[in-house]
Amino acid sequence: MEFDHTWWTFFIRWLHVLSGFMWIGLLWYFNFVQTPSMPKIPDEQKPAISKVIAPAALFWFRWSALSTIIFGLILAQMNGYLTEALSLGLSDHVAKHAAIGFGMWMGLIMMFNVWFIIWPNQKKALGMVEVSDEERPKAARRAGVTSRVNTMLSIPMLYAMVSAQNLY
């Protein structure tokens, strides 16, 4: 085995996929498990989620989102299609670049949503920062809807990522 460009490209892809599994796994945990379960949990047990589990999950969630994007951008540069993909394949009309480009843009939007909408609003909703009683449900709603947007985007995003490598 040689530690050449092919190996390092594989290695970065492996880190990209590891990070991505953690990110999207936690996103789906929030949307498929935690949020729908909250109304079924007795009030006196809710702090176990809001004070312990959710903050820990959000820590891994936001940092894995960032590392997925960083390793993904490095990977695209190593594969030589970063610019073509970011221009959605419109510069060279290559379907593979269009596919990976759509996936990259959706991933970038999702990462922006995590760091600049979901995380700041979750801090308010979970009581990690002081806000008025009026502001708290609004922040929870904003975080929840944005998390749903990311869940929706994760479906075409993963199609784009996998199809770029296997169909085009």
Binding site: G89, A95, A98, V145, T151, L153, I155, P156
Partner: peptide
Amino acid sequence: MNPLDSLSGTIISGLVFTVIMVVLINAIGA
């Protein structure tokens, strides 16, 4: 009604977006 208010609406919206995206990819790559 916002389709993102329910999990099933979220998934169906994601699948609709996927179909639109595939059409665009094939149009760009043609």
